[in-house]
Write a protein that binds this DNA or RNA. Sequence first.
DNA 1: CATGAATGAGAGTTCATTCAT
DNA 2: GATGAATGAACTCTCATTCAT
Lengths: 194, 194, 194, 194
Amino acid sequence: MGEKSIQKRKFILETARKVFVEKGFKKVTMKDIVEACDISRGGLYLYFDSTSQIFTEVMKLESEEADDVFSDSIAEDATAADILVLFLQEQKKELLRKKDTLTQAVYEFYFENQPGKKDNILKKQFDAAVKIIEKLIEAGVDNGEFYCEDCAGTARNIMFVVEGLKISAQTIGITADTVDREIVYILKSLGVEI
Amino acid sequence: MGEKSIQKRKFILETARKVFVEKGFKKVTMKDIVEACDISRGGLYLYFDSTSQIFTEVMKLESEEADDVFSDSIAEDATAADILVLFLQEQKKELLRKKDTLTQAVYEFYFENQPGKKDNILKKQFDAAVKIIEKLIEAGVDNGEFYCEDCAGTARNIMFVVEGLKISAQTIGITADTVDREIVYILKSLGVEI
Amino acid sequence: MGEKSIQKRKFILETARKVFVEKGFKKVTMKDIVEACDISRGGLYLYFDSTSQIFTEVMKLESEEADDVFSDSIAEDATAADILVLFLQEQKKELLRKKDTLTQAVYEFYFENQPGKKDNILKKQFDAAVKIIEKLIEAGVDNGEFYCEDCAGTARNIMFVVEGLKISAQTIGITADTVDREIVYILKSLGVEI
Amino acid sequence: MGEKSIQKRKFILETARKVFVEKGFKKVTMKDIVEACDISRGGLYLYFDSTSQIFTEVMKLESEEADDVFSDSIAEDATAADILVLFLQEQKKELLRKKDTLTQAVYEFYFENQPGKKDNILKKQFDAAVKIIEKLIEAGVDNGEFYCEDCAGTARNIMFVVEGLKISAQTIGITADTVDREIVYILKSLGVEI
DNA sequence: CATGAATGAGAGTTCATTCAT
DNA sequence: GATGAATGAACTCTCATTCAT
């Protein structure tokens, strides 16, 4: 596969991403992607075999980029609390955008695709996030910002709240206020007064 | 609509429920339901117009019955903590069953159907659950079982954790242990030592 | 399936037969049959799942009818030689028609479908024909019409010649003369002078 | 066309042959051949326009080589009967191999390609074989090995039996025994006792 | 009320064939 | 000569939905 093909491959994934953002996962057909990319039916099949394959690749790209974005926005002299708040604000922004996210598509995808936990990207991301938050809290506890008996437990709990907020945003709908209240609740439980 | 019709309607809904449990929402076709009910294609259309309509009705039935079940299992002399634990255990049982629940179908349904928050059953259920838990916590605080500064906030937080666990069960998969740890975490935050 | 359905089923098979006669087996698509029958795409699928299934059923019908036709044309006072000649003439007629026969389609079908010899209709027909010819020859030997040392062997040999003529008609092309010469050759080998 | 081109042409034909042996004629696509040869799609079109053309050339090669093989295996002092048996054994070997032969592909090809009998290779081969067998029988008659009234007729008959066995091998399936019985039958009819 | 045959739009997929490089 | 990306037609199969009975 030449350089050009790689470009086109990437173009397809980026275009497909928009389609998934707009329609979720299940409703998207190969035809939808073909039309969005303005290529021929057969052309798409040269690169990908199914919407599942395309979606998996889109997710890979997504997670690579996501890491970068987050690391980039951490200031040099940020405190643990700063970083935690930044992380939660990031989540908030994403879940409130709602109609500009892959979230729904990701959920739909995993509803029907749960290949043994081994290559479940979502699980990896979740576990990785828990680990990062745990480290963060530990650091915060060390320098007296946070108070916390069970850092691992708290980290996990925070992530389940985040997940709860995310799915709620997609189903029952939530407001910025609701998210803020949860953020405050979390910080308070860490002994941070605002 | 005669008595017989009402019976048939109910029969269809109960049978359709099984189909939704098994296949989620989106994948279910009118044909699936027709076949599961062993009625004629046209026959189904006499009662319902679409899978969405059927699913909405199934959810209504579901929520009515759910309330009953929960109230029934509360002992006369139960303490607030008992009831809260009972509620959480109930949730745990449901989310671990996973392949015997409407959960996934419900999520899928709301992914594409969010009629103004007015008649969003899911939201009503969520809000109702928050209210109940709030009352429960208040009662517990009153009789010294719980310690809690912001009962409403805690109730909301608990429900978001529950939602987080539910969606995680459907996507990344979780174990009984994970749920137990969250339950313990919640109780601890209410000052209950186990 | 009601009476009407049975009629339609039969209608489809008869129409499909014409298509197979014209195009062989492999080249025929469900679409071809749909168009020949002037029914809808989905309509055909109500009755049959694939061209293979349709073809199998066409062959069944065919073999039922074939038996009848042959028995009908045997005169009361026919001699063994008469009947043998009649049989061979029947084959000749069929193989010379060529473009009005299922022969080619049958061959194509068996090229890719050889389910264990159990339900190989073609084999059954072949074996049955051998048996009949054997009986015929034995009868002829008994009444002095034929001379033959190994009736079973001769019967088998005749059928292989018939098969050879049939496939040759489809591939290299043969004339009436060629067939006649073979018929004479067969009769001579049975001691019949013409 | 340079030397290199000629080599490549030959390479394609030899590779394509394997594909035809494996899949017959109709099922083979240009894509199949491209992949088997591991050349580019466009590349194949530089040499050949269609599977039909390729197949025709494959058959030409085949028939040239076949002649050589047969002549080579005839011993210096072989009798007419020896040679005839050798020929029939050769046919037997080929038709029992079945899944290692072009037979099926050849039949399929002629089912849809019968360019005026002029350049029908199959017919030429058939006629040539008849001639050879005829000469052979005549030779055998001359030196007293065979008894035969109509050498040409017998030769033709033998070839039709061979054709019958070949097509039967592809459709109803036959055993080595069946072929042996036919060989014995043929020899007996020539007055050869075994 | 109930049936189930019938329709036709639309999704997935594969290939022969072309053409810019 | 050779490549392989690209196209678009053609085929299979499935359903929501209608309608005569």
